[in-house]
Each structure stands twice: as C-alpha cells, then as structure tokens.
C-alpha cells in the first residue's frame, strides 16, 4: 500500500522529470530554429509526429511495431540462451573452485572483447542470416551474466553456510537453499545489464545484413541521408529498451520479494 507521503514524493519526482524533458525539448526546438543545424536536423515536433506516423506508414517493408518485433525476435532467443548458460557457468565458477580455475582464463579472454568485434567471425561461422546475429547477441548477454553470477556465488555469507550445516543440511541442500537464493539478486543485476547490452547490440547485429528491424531503420537512414528517420529509429530503440528494463525490474520484484535491489 502506498501512503500519501510516498504518493506526494512520487508526484514531485515526476514533475521534476517532466521539467527536465521539457527543457531538453525546448533547447532542441530553439536550437534547430535559430542555428544552421536546422538545415540538416528536424525539430522535436517533427520527430514525434514521424514517430507516431511510423506506426501506420511503413518504413521500408514494415511499420514500427513490425521492425520492433523483428528485433525482439533476434534479441530474445539469444538473450535467453546466453543468460541461462551464463547463470549456470557463473554459479559453477563462483562456487566450485576448480571449475573457476579451469574456465577463468578462457572467460577473461572473451570478457573484454566487445560483441560487435565478433561480427566478421560470426559471419564466417554462421553465415549472414539470423545465426550470426544470434551469436553476437548471445555473447552480449552471456558475458555480464557470468560475471554477476560469479560474484553472487562467491559472496555468500559464510555465517549462513555454517548455519545451514549447523541445522543439519548436507552440501547439496546448502547449495540449493542457500547459495542459489543468495545469488539471485546478483544474477538479476547481471540480467539487467545483459538486457541493455543485448538490445544495444541488435543495432550492430542488424548492420550485418538485414532488411528489417530497428537497427535497419538507422542503417537505411544513413543510405538515404534521412536524419528524421534516424531519429525516429533512435526514439523506438530507446522506448523499447526502457520498457524491457522496467519489465525486468518488475519480474525481479516478484521473484525476490525479500530483497529488492536499490537503484
């Protein structure tokens, strides 16, 4: 239940947020009108209008929702596979000493490589279809999830482990009922980072070769020098990214009612 004080605080927060957005839009509109940038760049009104238009009038082969669905089709399977594998490997590395010794060097080699650096290799391996896109998005999700899962399993409070043993739990039971739940908030913070990374990487993935998707909207706007279309694509990417992050937080709030991470 929200009390009135919290509600008031929320209202205040939204007002401040709204003010900053308005100021930003005003500066944009003013800048476009009074300087040379106006020649190449549309004002906010036109971008918003075009964005709404894009839901009814196709850009290329699809309208905006069509492009978004295409991009989600590329992101979600790869994200899910990357996350699941990342959780399993990360927890194993964080908890079992020798799994860590064995896999750590490989992981540390892959970790600093930005996913888009894999584009040429992934084309060689998986062709220019969906496979290569899935592969680099998989990497974008996998790397941060592993990292956070490791730190979750590593930082389990040793007192709680002793407490489990004191209560008569064996190693397996302790792993299942203490190590895993303790790691869940860490895993979620990895999943959150991975989701942003995957969504950001889809734009790059769609550069490989595609004729649809939010990334394609951006790429094709470069070919036609259509700055408005580019901005419309950016707005679409931003909004979808935001919605995904909110959904993820909602899921986290449901799954770990005992500890909702402070942002």
């Amino acid at each position: 239940m929200m009390d009135t004080k919290k509600l008031k605080q929320l209202a205040k927060d939204s007002v401040y947020g709204l003010i900053s957005v308005c100021v930003f839009l005003c500066i944009w509109a003013f800048g476009v009108r009074t300087s040379d940038i106006g020649i190449v760049m549309p004002g906010p009104g036109k971008v918003i209008y075009e964005f709404i238009q894009s839901f009814f009038v196709p850009i290329g082969k699809y309208t905006m929702p069509g492009h978004i669905l295409w991009s989600l089709y590329r992101v979600l399977p790869a994200y899910i596979v990357g996350s699941v594998l990342g959780i399993v490997i990360g927890i194993a590395m964080g908890w079992f000493r020798y799994v860590n010794s064995f896999l750590r060097p490989l992981y540390e080699m892959i970790r600093p490589i930005p996913p888009i650096a894999w584009i040429p290799i992934s084309i060689v391996w998986f062709g220019i279809g969906e496979g290569s896109k899935w592969f680099i998005i998989f990497l974008a999700a996998f790397v941060p999830v592993v990292l956070n899962s490791i730190s979750g399993a590593k930082s389990v409070d040793p007192l709680l482990l002793k407490c489990g043993e004191m209560l008569g739990a064996d190693k397996k039971y302790i792993f299942r009922t203490i190590v895993l739940p303790y790691s869940v908030p860490y895993i979620f913070s990895g999943l959150q980072v991975a989701l942003s990374a995957s969504w950001a990487t889809v734009v790059a993935a769609e550069m490989i070769r595609s004729s649809e998707g939010v990334g394609w909207i951006i790429i094709s706007s470069m070919d036609t020098n259509n700055v408005t279309q580019s901005l419309v694509g950016i707005v679409g990417i931003g909004i979808v990214g935001f919605i995904l992050a909110v959904m993820m937080r909602e899921l986290e709030g449901r799954l770990c009612r005992w500890t909702v991470r402070e942002n």
């Binding site: 709680l160 043993e165 500890t259």
Partner: peptide, 18 residues
C-alpha cells in the same frame, strides 16, 4: 564440526532472508 545436535542462536542472527 557443526551438527544439528548443537543448535546455535547467533549474535548476528544469521536468518535466511529469502
């Protein structure tokens, strides 16, 4: 080693928050 026949109530409580 710790065992269930020796129960402990910890100063730091050590409850399972989940």
């Amino acid at each position: 080693r710790p065992a269930p026949e020796r129960g402990v109530v910890f100063q730091a409580m050590a409850l399972f928050p989940w």
